[in-house]
Design a protein around this nucleic acid. Structure first.
Lengths: 242, 242
DNA sequence: TGACGGTATTGGTCAGACCACCCTCGCGGT
DNA sequence: ACCGCGAGGGTGGTCTGACCAATACCGTCA
């Protein structure tokens, strides 16, 4: 009868799509404030409960941001906003998928490091060195991990592709690395890690993209291989073939 | 007083974290059914409304799946489930970020195609060829786009890394490609696209990873360069320097 | 003019009711 | 004994209305 399309899926799902469409069509600009929950519910002809679920969904996706007492706003829709959920994937993955994620990280990280070698500025390089020295000056695994993350984060930022940096951030999220890192470093990999970081740093200083690519790939690849071996080893507690 | 941590953030947000933690700790297995919304709400000491928002959030993230009349289940937590939201990023991005996304895609797609060249089976190759011929046998842009997507999807699958394939799927999502593709193909790029696809196919048949990498990188790079030029051109309607 | 405080606005939470859908179990027919 | 099917209970989906808590606005007062 009316112009509204036939109902497909839940009303909440439709509300999510409609708001996404509004943003996609440019009717809602980044940073712009939306009508109140109550008004939006009326506009879309649904209850406030359903509208709240839709808003909550878009909030966790990093598309909207709700400020208590103030209103609902569209985020800046920058890479960091939208790719924050990428960390969830890393956190909930295990077993073979962890290896796959590390493989993706190896590919992106090696390219990012290569790009950084070509583009990095003296200031950025100084920042990288700061974390490198701090990392080598302590034995506290927590501190090392923090500077290790920052080390790679600075390099990714220097590559000049915010989207790639955001993805790498998700692939190196704190909980993800802590899980793999712990076991890896327990086997006395500290020395090796330091050598690899030093190699990456040398390549950056020399502005040598190919060396940087190789060093980064080897760095991530070491962890990848270790994890692969771990999985292959513990996969067969009972019964071993002759 | 009690053992519950001090309140941080909204109750819904806490509920989301708790369920995520349950899955992360293995207390909830993939495919397993959760208690009812009502029971969960009681367990976490919150109202059903808030619990529903938490469930909805985890549903859009691909972690949970609600089946009307049946119950709430943990998804298989496979790459496809969790990375489905990646398409949202592609759909809502525009301007410079589209170029960045294409750059990421170029890096991953070229590597995936190289891996596929080494590993692809005759059956998979036949599937790729099916879409290649179908793509060349019609003039309907819609049909071409569909087979184009399937062509690259099959190759990504043949690379053997489901996570990478899922990310590429998001980076090639229907709405994303339609937006860029439309303008690109309007400039008579059909012939060039066919040549590039043929080159990729030849490399796959020859099981030549390096040729495959180069062909795929060039293929995506063409679109990337076109888009870059588009943005540079329309970025300055008023005032051009001498 | 500027700091203060009250009040309207707005998101956050809760409670209870009803609907739509799925699944199962038992009834009845074959 | 077996099969089909229909009613009922259980579950997610939606709506309503109320109240709480944080914020923003604006008028008042020093």
């Amino acid at each position: 009868m009316d112009e509204t399309a036939p109902q497909k899926g839940t009303v909440t799902q439709r509300a999510i799509e409609r708001i996404k469409a509004m943003i996609g069509e440019g009717r809602l600009e980044p940073g712009q404030r939306l009508p109140t929950e109550r008004d939006l519910a009326v506009q879309l002809g649904i209850s406030r409960s359903s509208m709240r679920e839709a808003i909550r969904a878009l909030t966790v996706l990093g598309v909207l941001e709700a400020r208590h007492g103030s209103g609902i706003y569209v985020t800046q829709l920058e890479a960091g906003d939208l790719l924050e959920t990428f960390g969830v994937v890393a956190d909930l993955s295990r077993g073979p998928r962890l290896v796959e994620l590390l493989e993706v990280r190896r590919i992106l990280e090696s390219t990012a490091t290569a790009l950084a070698a070509a583009r990095i500025t003296p200031d950025q390089l100084a920042e990288v060195e700061k974390h490198l020295t701090a990392m080598n000056a302590t034995d506290d695994p927590e501190v090392i991990l923090a500077h290790d993350l920052a080390f790679h984060r600075e390099i990714a930022a220097a590559a000049g592709n915010d989207t790639m940096a955001a993805i790498l951030e998700g692939l190196s999220s704190r909980t993800f690395r802590a899980r793999v890192w712990r076991g890896y470093q327990e086997e006395g990999a500290f020395a090796r890690t330091r050598r690899e970081h030093a190699a990456i740093h040398r390549a950056l200083v020399a502005h040598d993209p190919e060396a940087a690519r190789a060093a980064a790939a080897a760095h991530v690849g070491e962890v990848e291989e270790w994890l692969r071996a771990q999985l292959a080893g513990q996969a067969r507690p009972p019964a071993s073939p002759p």
